[in-house]
Amino acid sequence: MVADVTALIPQPATSAPPAVADSGAQGGIARYAMENHTHASKIRKSRIAVSAATYTWTYPTPFGAGVVPICNGIAETAPSATDLINIQIDGAPTNTQCTFRITRYQQSVVSLIGLTTLSLNGVPASVNLHLSAMEP
């Protein structure tokens, strides 16, 4: 009799849980998750100091083969900085890396006529980049 009841008790899962999805779905497998399980993230992120015109970011964990992530880069400057930093994606991202182009523009105001002018000054001495890559 005890053997019959034991067979009805769900067993622990034997594989890693799926990655976090954009929308939820009810599961249909009668297994339970072990207490120390983890879900794979769909986003990679980093904060890195850069002092070059380009930076190739290799993700800490690659995305699946053929996955082209949605990548973003934002510059962090000092509170008193007046320069403008432009970050753009240089070429197409891959499942393992993304290259960013970093350009600094010096901002100055022509006080007599109230216009703001920009001049290209190349790469900042050092800027922190906040980078993210998300699985579509």
Rank of each mutant, 00 (worst) to 15 (best):
K45R: 11
Y32D: 03
C71Q: 08
A49M: 11
T54F: 01
V68S: 03
G64C: 11
I74H: 11
T38E: 01
P69Q: 05
T61S: 10
P60T: 02
S46G: 01
T54K: 08
P69G: 01
P69L: 02
A30R: 13
A65L: 12
T58H: 09
R31A: 11
E35N: 14
E35P: 09
T58P: 15
I74T: 15
S46E: 08
G64H: 10
N72E: 06
T56Q: 15
Y32E: 02
R44E: 00
M34K: 12
G73C: 05
A53R: 05
I74K: 09
N36S: 07
K45I: 03
A65M: 13
G64V: 01
T58E: 08
R31E: 11
A53D: 13
K45Q: 06
A53K: 02
N36R: 15
H39N: 14
P62I: 00
A53P: 07
M34T: 03
Y55A: 10
A75H: 01
G73N: 03
C71V: 15
R47F: 11
R44F: 02
A33T: 06
S51G: 07
K45S: 10
S51D: 05
A52G: 03
N72G: 12
T54Q: 15
T54Y: 04
A30S: 14
V50L: 02
V68W: 02
Y55I: 04
H39P: 07
S46M: 11
